[in-house]
Nucleic acid binder design. Structure first.
Length: 810
RNA sequence: GGGCCCAUGAUCUAGUGGCUAUGAUGUCACCCUUACAAGGUGAACGUCCCCGGUUCGAGUCCGGGUGGGCCCACCA
């Protein structure tokens, strides 16, 4: 044992070769540095190759942990970028960070102890940029570089950067000019905690328990009706009562007036089909505004407006004695009073789902304010049309996009009453209705820092700057334009737009995908990308979503302390795009085993290529041709699968061929020829060497996008210098090669079948596979395999092959 | 309430109307085979969620259930 290892050691050192064991840590570091130093992934703007551009999702850079789902998804499309590069495209793969949102704002506020009262918006922005740079540098090294990602870092953009701000503001100015962006006083969805308007897409469900209150209202004639409501705090804002038109119980009420308790306003009783007769008492009060239906009915029935809450969710003077109370406090007080007056007849527990702010979970309210909107409702059909021009992978996600588009109820509200973000470049006259929007050539700017002086329209008022900022999607919806440098480099921009691919998560189809399609349509009547591919969603081992609150989140950076990057990437390569996968750490074992196998098989092959002159032999043995033909099939399958973003299918096919056809069978078959140079005049050994070289070099390339480090290491032992190539990642993707020979597949299949039978017999008889046998084959087989007899003898360890009925003797 | 996706050995998974249902992990047996024991060769483990239909033939198509996941709407 010791002796054998020692001899191996000597041999390995004599013939420049792969180390005995694969040392992942060293290899990974070595090549990551090399790629960076040699600019392997640099985008060449002057290249004549076709461009493949990726509209990368800008990640929030955070100093904290990296979610395994995130690492998976980013690696998933990184694999595609590598594939396309090898396929001959000039790949435009620009990294980016989203550092313009609330997380950055919070981080700076907490870390530096500043807030919007102590610094100006532009100072605050400067602080954010500084804080981000540090975090992003760490993120870049600890995450992207560590995962072996092949971005061209010269192309980096950040959503807080000038170009991104300019694009967002330019988009706004252009849309205002063309009439697709307007300012209006409308009921908007409102978060009382953040004191900002929200888009429909920012509202999430919140399940909670509440009380349904049955309250008596007096009629003018002295009769009483009973109304069920969960929001008695809105009594002051009550502007009407509804019953169902077919509800015989209440036929007589319609047209009469009711008197609202406590506040005593008279409100009309009307009918609407949408009333549910079976809910509560079947009598509904409508207030401005308790919920969505209130807004609908308010508009439909032309009811008056009574706003009783302010931006903080506090009641105002219209709420009389309840002024200054929060909605919750007012509810308690009002219930108290109603009880005292004997008007509260009953209270029931009720489970309800209310909309809430996606950031803070505060239930949303509806407030009438001046907001900017981008038209979407007008273009529903066009947007669905645009969606159909895009290739969706998997296809069924287009349905989700169409459903969302069809069911849109609001235009897109783009203004937010936040402090930090992209400023809205507009000014308003404080005397008349004049709105002044910045000119495109002034952008980017912060209107708060520019004095526009007197109103040009009424000559009387002053122009006051808009203090709001854009919804973050206002920037994100322009990522194809930002990444391709729409404004910075308009000439080259056209080569990169529409993007080839938008990789993204399925849960933001209604936001990111939708808004991006909308913007590209409004600005260019164009689709933003040719393909959209929805990544894999990682669940915990039991198939539940990973949430910090559940404590079941797996962090990729911790995983990478235990496993090699290529091991992790191997797992990524097998994940199916668009579907959910449960995360099981045991499954990483697979990747580890694969790397070891690849290393050892390569070591074996390279050892036997030591004195190979790389020329084509005069004659290629039939069994060699058989495995070359099978390689062709794999190249075809892998290529076709990659073209539809089915990395999982591609890699399964490649790996199965590598492991079972190549290692388990082919390597065993050729050992005899390799170890005995004089067998069959030496030419058969060369045939084996030629085949080994071909297969291994192609396999390495096929698997390189998934496991870039180990393949680069092996490639550089021999292949790189022959191909005069700096990196396997700039090598050409394998192509099928023409191979002639009659009946090769039939011969090979029979050959393998015989080998497998012999192995089974040996195992059944508890014999070692190297035990010698006497093999008997029928005439037909012998005839078909007449040129392969030597290989068959060698691999089955048959001393002799006889004619007769199939049999194996020891 | 609506839409979409999913259900296959213990676990994860392939299967796009057609011979005996794929592969991996785990389990068991045997084999140290001049790359690899982190390996090799085999074996066991399946009512393909249930019911009905179409078909010569259904894991696959259709209808209806059941159970899970995601998205949306929502009762005032």
């Amino acid at each position: 044992m010791i002796r054998k290892t020692y001899i191996n050691y000597i041999l390995l050192n004599l013939i420049k070769m792969l180390d005995k064991n694969y040392n992942a840590a060293d290899v990974e570091k070595k090549w990551q540095d090399y790629w960076e130093k040699e600019n392997i992934y640099k985008f060449d703007p002057n290249s004549k190759k076709k461009i493949y551009s990726v509209d990368v999702p800008p990640p929030y850079a955070s100093a904290g942990h990296l979610h395994v789902g995130h690492a998976l998804h980013y690696t998933q499309f990184e694999i595609i970028a590598r594939y396309k590069r090898m396929k001959g495209f000039n790949v435009y793969f620009a990294p980016c960070f989203d550092d313009n949102g609330l997380p950055t704002e919070k981080y700076v506020e907490e870390k530096l102890g500043v807030n919007k009262n102590t610094v100006s918006r532009s100072e605050f922005r400067k602080l954010c940029i500084e804080a981000n740079e540090e975090v992003e540098r760490i993120y870049r090294d600890k995450v992207f570089k560590r995962l072996g990602h092949s971005y061209d870092w010269n192309l980096l953009y950040t959503t807080i950067g000038n170009e991104a701000q300019k694009v967002a503001q330019t988009s706004f100015v252009k849309l205002v000019k063309q009439g697709d962006c307007y300012r209006a006083e409308e009921p908007t969805i409102w978060c009382t905690y953040h004191q900002t308007a929200l888009a429909q897409a920012e509202v999430e469900d919140l399940k909670r328990k509440t009380k349904l209150n049955y309250i008596d209202f007096d009629l003018e004639n002295g009769e009483k009706i009973n109304v069920a409501t969960t929001r008695p705090e809105f009594l002051a804002a009550c502007v009407g009562i509804f019953v169902h038109p077919d509800d015989v119980r209440y036929e007589d009420l319609v047209g009469k007036n009711a008197v609202v308790p406590i506040f005593n306003q008279k409100v009309p009783i009307m009918t609407d089909e949408k009333v549910d007769k079976d809910f509560g008492t079947g009598i509904v009060m409508i207030c401005t505004f308790g919920d969505n239906t209130d807004i609908e009915w308010w508009k439909k029935h032309n009811l008056p407006l009574k706003i009783i809450i302010d931006k903080r969710g506090m009641l105002n003077e219209l709420a009389l004695e309840y002024k200054g109370l929060t909605l919750n406090d007012a509810r308690e007080k009002i219930i108290e009073k109603l009880t005292k007056e004997g008007k509260l007849k009953n209270r029931e527990e009720l489970e309800q789902t209310v909309g809430s702010c996606w950031r803070c979970n505060t239930p949303v309210e509806y407030i009438v304010t001046k907001q900017w909107f981008i038209k979407a409702l007008n273009y529903k059909n066009e947007l669905i049309e645009q969606g159909r021009k895009i290739n969706w992978y998997p296809e069924f996600f287009r349905v989700r996009y169409e459903d969302w588009t069809k069911n849109l109820g609001w235009d897109w509200c783009i203004s937010r009453q936040r402090f930090f973000g992209v400023p809205i470049p507009a000014w308003y006259c404080n005397k008349c209705d004049n709105i002044v929007v910045a000119k495109e050539n002034e952008l980017p700017l912060d209107p708060l820092e520019i004095d526009r002086g007197k109103c040009t329209k009424c000559k009387n008022g002053e122009l006051k700057a808009d203090e709001d900022v854009f919804d973050t999607w206002m920037t994100s919806s322009m990522t194809p334009q930002i990444t391709a440098r729409w404004l910075e480099d308009p000439l080259n921009y056209k080569k990169k737009f529409p993007s080839s691919l938008r990789p993204q998560a399925q849960d933001i189809i209604r936001t990111w995908a939708f808004y991006t399609i909308l913007k590209s349509y409004l600005h260019f009547k164009e689709i933003p990308w040719r393909d959209i591919s929805l990544g894999t969603f990682v669940l915990d081992a039991k198939g539940r979503g990973m949430h910090k609150s559940k404590g079941n989140v797996v962090w990729a950076d911790i995983l990478l302390e235990k496993y090699d990057v290529d091991t992790f990437r191997h797992w990524v390569g097998k994940a199916k795009w668009g579907s959910d996968i449960p995360f099981k750490e045991e499954e990483l074992v697979n990747g580890k085993k694969f790397l070891t196998k690849l290393w050892n098989a390569s070591k074996f092959v390279l050892m036997h290529l030591e004195n190979y002159d790389y020329s084509k032999p005069n004659k290629i043995e039939d069994i060699d041709k058989y495995y070359l033909l099978k390689l062709n099939d794999i190249i075809k399958t892998a290529t076709e699968s990659y073209e539809t973003y089915d990395t999982s299918e591609a890699n399964k096919a490649i790996e199965s061929y590598f492991w079972h056809d190549f290692c388990d069978n082919y390597l065993e078959i050729v050992k005899d020829r390799l170890y005995n140079p004089n067998v069959r005049g030496g030419e058969s050994r060369k045939s084996a060497q030629y085949t080994l070289y071909k297969i291994l070099s192609n396999l390495l390339k096929l698997i390189a996008p998934v496991v870039p480090h180990i393949t680069e290491e092996i490639y550089h032992v021999d292949f790189a210098k022959n191909e005069e190539n700096k990196s396997i990642h700039t090598a050409e993707w394998p192509k099928e090669e023409k191979i002639d020979g009659k009946l090769i597949i039939e011969k090979g299949d029979l050959f393998v079948k015989i080998v497998e039978s012999v192995r089974k017999i040996k195992t059944d008889n508890k014999k070692s596979l190297k035990d010698e046998i006497v093999l008997t084959l029928d005439n037909k087989s012998l005839d078909l395999l007449k040129d392969l007899i030597d290989d068959l003898k060698a691999v089955t360890k048959a001393k002799e092959i006889k004619k007769g009925e199939f049999n194996t003797e020891f």
